[in-house]
Design a protein around this nucleic acid. Structure first.
Lengths: 340, 340
DNA sequence: GTGAAAGCGCTAACAG
DNA sequence: CTGTTAGCGCTTTCAC
C-alpha cells in the first residue's frame, strides 16, 4: 500500500520534465509553452493531483487558515457566528480551525497555543465569561498574529472588535415595552462581569429613567437561562410583585418566563409583556411567539472574517486603525408584546 | 516589523549551538547533556517558542488535523456532533477543520478537495440530502485518507459509520404511543431519499403492524420543520381526520403541531399525543414539553472522532473491519404523551 | 554529546 | 521556454 499522495514530482517524472516546469505550468506561468501546459494539466487531472497546502504554507509562511475560539459550539448564537465565518472564509480561500473553551480559561489558553503552533494567519475569539487576564491574547498579538474579538471583547488589546450595540438594543426594547403601555417593568439579567450583560442592563435602566418609569431594584433578577427564567417568575409571583413588562437578557430566560406565566393562567401579553434577546430558534416556538432582539450572529461572523482577512492581507497593517464595528440589531416584533 | 515567529534556529544561534541539538534538547533526547537541555528549554520558554506544526506536518506527512463536512453548522444536532468531535480530537492531539456544504452537492465536492489539499489525516462527514453520486468520497478513500460517516451515511463505501438505530428508535416511540392508548396514529416524515427518514418511517409502520393498529396512507405527511408541522395539522383538521397520536421525524415538526393544536384548543396529550425526535433545545420549550427521542449528537461526535483517530493511528489499517457503530438512543418522556 | 547534511513538497531566483 | 538550486522549519541518519 503505497499511500502516495500525488506530488508535483510524480507528474514531472512521468512526463520527463522538471518539477519547476510542472509547478509553473499548473499556474499558467506565461513562460511555459502551451503544449507543456496542456500535457501537465491533463496528467494532473488524471492523477487527481491536489497541491499540498502544507508545503505551500511552509514555504510562504502563510497557512490560509483562520482559527476560532468560542466558549461553546453548541449554542445557537455561536454556531451562527461560526457559520458566517466559515462562509466568508471559504469564499475567500481560507480554511477554518475551530476550538472551544467550554468557558474554561485554561482551555482558552491551550487553544491559543495550539492555534499559534498551527500557524494560523489570524484568530477570531469570543472569550470565556471568566477571562480577566488577557496575557495569552497579548502573546498572540506580540507575534503579530491579527485577532478579532466578537461579542465578548477584551479591553486594552490592539485588536478589532465586532459587537452589537447592546446598550442601544436594550434601550430600544425597553422603550418599546413602555410605548405599548407597560408601567412596571422588570429585567432578567445576565452575569455583570460580562460587558454585554452590563450594557443591556444599563440600556434598560436608562430607558426607564428617560421615560419617567420608576425603577425597582427588586425587579432586576439574575436569570439567563430557561430554568432561571422560570424561577424568577415564580419568585415574583410569590412576592406578589409581578410586573406588566419584562425585558430579558436572552430568549431562553424569556421562554422560561412565558412557560410559567401560562401555567399560572397569566396572559402574555395582556397581563405581562415580554421581550427577549437573540432571536434564536426558540423565539418562534414559544407561545405566543417572542418579541426579541435580532442579534444576527451570522452577519457578525461574516464581518469578523471580513475584517480579519482584510488585516491579514494588508501589507502596511499598522496603518489601519483598529475598528470597533457595530452590527445593527433589530427588534423583531411578534406576539409576546402588545401592539402600539 | 520583523514578523518573526521564533524558530529552532533562533534558539540555536543565540546559544551558539546547532539546530539539531536544540531539536533534541527540546524533546529530551537521552544523548543531550542536562546542562544544554536546561539552557535550551529556558530560552525557548523565554522567547515563547512554539513548534511550527506546519513544518512538522510536512516532514512527517501527518497533519494531526481532522476535517469535518456537515450540511449546516447552525443546527442543534450538527453542532452537538461537532462539539463532541472537537472535544475528543483536542484531547488526543488533533485539530479540527470545519466546512459546511449547505446541502449543496457542489459545495460538498469542493469541501472534499480543500480538505485533501490541507492533507487532513481523516475526514468525518454527514452528507447532503441530495448526494447520490459518491465519487468525490471515493476519490478520498482512494488516496487512503480514512473517512467516517455519521447519521447520513453512504452505501457501498469502505468507511466506518456511526449511526443511531433509527428504525428501532421509531419503533419504540410508536409503541409507546400505542401503550399509552393511542389508536389512530400519524407520522410526520422527512424526505424519503434520506435513509434515516425512511428508517424512521419503517419503524413506525412496523410498530403499528405488530400491534394491530391500522395504518392509513393519508396519515403519513411529509413535514420536517416547524412550518410544515403546522400545515400538516391544519390539513388533518380540515380533512376532519385528526389522529390521537403523532410521531414526528424531528422536534421542530412536533413543535409546529403542538402550536396549532393548542391554538385550536385541542389538548395535548389528552386529545392528541405527540412524540418528536432529536431532543434539541425546543423540546423543553414547547408547552407541554415534548416527549422525544434523544439522539445524542455529542456522543456521536465523540465516537466518530474516536473511531477515526483509531484508524488513522493504526499501522495495519487493512486489518480492522469497518465498523457500523450504533449509538444508543433513549426515549425521553415528558408531557406531550399520556402516562402509561 | 554535538554537528552537518538530507529531505518532506513546493516556489522563485538564477541560469542557460 | 525549461532546468538547477536553495530554502521555508523541523527531524533524523550519519559522522566525529
Amino acid at each position: 500500500m503505497i499511500n502516495h499522495q500525488i506530488t508535483i514530482k510524480d507528474i514531472a517524472k512521468q512526463l520527463g520534465i522538471s518539477a519547476s516546469t510542472v509547478s509553473r505550468a499548473l499556474k499558467d506561468h506565461p513562460d511555459i509553452s502551451d503544449k507543456t501546459k496542456t500535457k501537465v494539466k491533463a496528467l494532473a487531472k488524471e492523477l487527481k493531483y491536489r497541491p499540498n497546502a502544507v508545503a505551500l504554507s511552509l514555504q510562504s509562511s502563510k497557512s490560509n487558515v483562520i482559527g476560532i475560539i468560542v466558549p461553546q459550539i453548541v449554542h445557537h448564537f455561536f454556531s451562527s457566528v461560526i457559520s458566517g465565518i466559515e462562509e466568508y472564509a471559504t469564499d475567500n480561500g481560507y480554511n477554518v480551525i475551530i476550538t472551544q473553551s467550554n468557558e474554561i480559561v485554561d482551555k482558552e489558553i491551550k487553544n491559543c497555543q495550539t492555534l499559534v503552533s498551527s500557524r494560523v494567519d489570524g484568530i477570531i475569539v469570543s472569550r470565556t465569561k471568566h477571562t480577566t487576564d488577557f496575557k495569552h491574547f497579548q502573546n498572540i498579538i506580540d507575534k503579530d498574529v491579527p485577532m478579532v474579538f466578537f461579542d465578548r471583547t477584551c479591553h486594552g488589546l490592539k485588536t478589532d472588535r465586532i459587537v452589537i450595540d447592546d446598550y442601544r438594543a436594550a434601550y430600544e426594547a425597553t422603550e418599546y415595552l413602555i410605548k405599548t403601555g407597560c408601567k412596571k417593568i422588570a429585567h432578567f439579567s445576565g452575569p455583570e462581569i460580562l460587558k454585554i450583560s452590563a450594557k443591556r442592563m444599563w440600556g434598560f435602566r436608562d430607558a426607564l429613567k428617560k421615560n419617567n418609569i420608576p425603577f425597582y431594584e427588586e425587579l432586576i433578577i439574575n436569570a439567563d437561562n430557561f430554568e432561571k427564567g422560570k424561577e424568577a417568575i415564580l419568585q415574583l409571583i410569590k412576592e406578589n410583585n409581578l410586573p406588566d413588562g419584562i425585558f430579558t437578557v436572552n430568549d431562553m430566560s424569556a421562554a422560561g418566563a412565558i412557560n410559567i406565566l401560562k401555567s399560572k393562567n397569566i396572559k402574555v401579553p395582556e397581563n405581562v409583556s415580554i421581550i427577549g434577546f437573540t432571536n434564536g430558534l426558540v423565539s418562534t416556538i414559544t407561545d405566543p411567539p417572542l418579541t426579541t432582539v435580532e442579534q444576527n450572529g451570522f452577519e457578525m461572523g461574516k464581518k469578523s472574517a471580513e475584517i480579519l482577512i482584510k488585516r491579514i492581507e494588508d501589507e502596511n497593517e499598522e496603518n489601519i486603525p483598529y475598528v470597533n464595528e457595530i452590527i445593527p440589531t433589530k427588534l423583531i416584533i411578534r406576539s409576546s408584546t402588545k401592539s402600539l
